[in-house]
Structures are given as C-alpha cells and as structure tokens.
Simulated scan of single mutants.
Amino acid sequence: MAQDKAVFAKQKDQMATGKGFIAALDQSGGSTPKALLQYGVEESEYNGEAEMFGEIHKMRARIITAPDFTNDKVLGAILFERTMRGEIEGLPTAQYLWEKRGVVPFLKIDKGLADQENGVQVMKPMPGLEDLLNDAAQNFGIFGTKERSVIHEANAEGIEAVVAQQFEVGRAVIAAGMVPILEPEVNIHSETKEEAEALLEASLAKHLDTLAEGEDVMIKLTIPSVPGLYDGLADHPRVVRVVALSGGYSTDEACERLSKNAKMIASFSRALAEGLSKKQSDDDFNALLGSNIDKIYQASL
C-alpha cells in the first residue's frame, strides 16, 4: 500500500484542519504490561513476549473497530511497529484505519529513552531508521511518525539537545516522504515545569525557522502550565498541528487543561483507554470508549 500523493494531500488536510484528536495506540515493549494490566489482563494470562503482543493487538483492534472510532472525532492514530505489521479484519492495520475508519495512520519510531543527562532524556540510537521509514511509507501507507524524548528540568543545554535531536530525526522522516510528530515531553511532575516549557518554546521556534518550505512537522507537547504558550508554534507556517499528550493526567484533568489551549488538540493514550476492560461486554466497552472519545473530542475543539 504505497503512499499515494492525492491520499497524502487529503490526509495532511485532515490533520491540519480537521476537528478531533489523535489516538495514541503505541505503547511499546516496556509499557505494554502496564497497559494490559489497566485493560484487566494480568501477566499470568499470557506467556512470553509473543503472547503479550498478541493480547495488546487484540485490545487495539477492539478499540479501532469500535463504532465511535471514526474520523468524525478521531483524526489520526499512532501505531507501534508490531501493530503496523499486524492486520485487522484481514487488512494491514494502517490500511484498515484509513480505508474503513478514515483515520490517518502514524508510526512510533523511537527506541526508547537514553539515561538522564542535563535534566533530560534524549532518544536512544535508532539503527535501521532509514529502512524502517521507507518500509512504513512505501509498503504500509503510513502518513507520519512520532518520536519521544523527555525533559525533567529547566536546563537550557539539555532542552536544546532534545530539540536538536528531534529536528535531526524529523528531517530524516521528511526525506522519506512523511510528516514527523516531534514529541519533546515535559514531565508533568517537574518542579521547574513552567520554566522548562518557556525554554522549550523558544528552542522549538528557533529550529522551526530553519525548515524550508515543504518541510512540515507536527509537534506533540505536554499541556503547558501557562495556557496558550504554544499558540505561536501552532501558527508557524511549517507546523501542520500542535497536539497535546496526557502525560499521566486523568482523562478529566487532561481534558480540562487542554480546553484552555485553543490551538492544541489531544493525542492521548492512557486517557483514551481509561476504564476499558477485556472483561467488558462489547456494548459496555463501546459505550465507555465512546464516552472517552467524546470527552477528548470536546476538549480538542
């Protein structure tokens, strides 16, 4: 399912102007047991990595095939690599998302976080990145990527290192014909969160000005302590959209904080799946997911 230029343009327009949010369905190896436990699947219920990933794929497929998971409210979805390589109802996951749900597919590409240094965690090295990007774009019809680093303290040197790395990876994604979601997360528990966000905003603005026309990005950020802090980034000509991560806030708190930021839309993971359980009937599961989707959608308007 190679990327079609007309489809890409339509997807880009949906991401830039659509009403709704991005579903983050990209928990990776380290966070999968936690995500399954939240979903009511105990570690004793699966044996080994293959079965664990099988369980999480079933959970994601259940979410994606739910009646309310359509582009009426869900603009895009971020997938883990194994999910991209899996299928839903006989179709590759990304193809199912776009053709059956009208939802734009993204791929998480980072390999996790390096150890903390200068108050931040940059991304670990990504061997084979170019091959993965070409595979995602050419063989799976992926529109964009997501890559995450974390800022713990208002350390100017550390924050600059995070942003520089994000843009370096972002340029590789753009070269492969996709739109990167740069995700320099600020830890919601940081004692210097507000100061860190001010430094981050300035660094992002500086790096955005180095992008040429056509080198477009999205940015995924922690909901700022000062509402509207990132409005200028959202208005930058190289920015398709600024999206918000839930960062550990409950669904209600994340939505309440997001609603004060008119130029950000949600890209929530935990908040989307909050309260969902494998043991629920389909009716109960779909009703609760529909309620979560609606809350996040309303906060993103």
Rank of each mutant, 00 (worst) to 15 (best):
V122M: 12
S190T: 10
L133N: 06
D110S: 07
L107W: 02
K146M: 08
L200H: 01
I188L: 12
F106V: 02
D110L: 07
I159D: 00
G177W: 09
I159F: 03
E215M: 08
E191V: 03
V226W: 02
M123A: 14
E99I: 06
S225Q: 06
D115M: 14
I188K: 10
P127R: 11
Q121K: 15
V103I: 15
A136W: 05
L229P: 00
A94S: 10
G232H: 10
E153A: 09
V163L: 09
V217F: 11
A161K: 14
K100L: 09
Q165N: 10
H152W: 13
Q165V: 10
A212K: 15
V150K: 11
A156R: 05
S225Y: 00
H152F: 13
L199C: 01
G177S: 12
A198L: 04
A154L: 06
L208N: 06
W98S: 02
P125T: 15
G214D: 12
D231Y: 07
E117P: 06
D231K: 08
A205L: 13
K220I: 05
E99F: 03
V169H: 04
L200V: 03
A136K: 06
G144T: 09
A154N: 06
L107R: 02
P227R: 01
E153S: 10
L221C: 04
E99N: 11
L229F: 01
V162N: 03
Q116T: 15
A205I: 07
A137I: 05
L200Y: 01
A164T: 14
A164K: 15
G214R: 12
K108L: 05
N155T: 07
E157C: 09
G141K: 05
L132T: 09
V150N: 07
L113R: 10
D135H: 11
Y96Q: 03
E185A: 07
M178Y: 08
A175F: 08
P105A: 04
F167G: 02
A205S: 14
N139S: 14
G232W: 06
Q138M: 10
E183V: 10
I223Q: 00
M178F: 08
T145F: 09
E157T: 14
A176Q: 12
A94P: 02
S203A: 14
P125C: 14
V186Y: 00
E201H: 04
A137L: 05
A114N: 15
I151L: 03
Q166M: 09
V104G: 02
E195H: 02
G119Y: 13
E117N: 15
E117K: 15
P105D: 04
V150Q: 11
D131G: 11
E201L: 01
I159V: 04
G112K: 13
G228R: 04
H207K: 14
L113T: 11
G144W: 06
E195K: 09
E185S: 08
I142N: 02
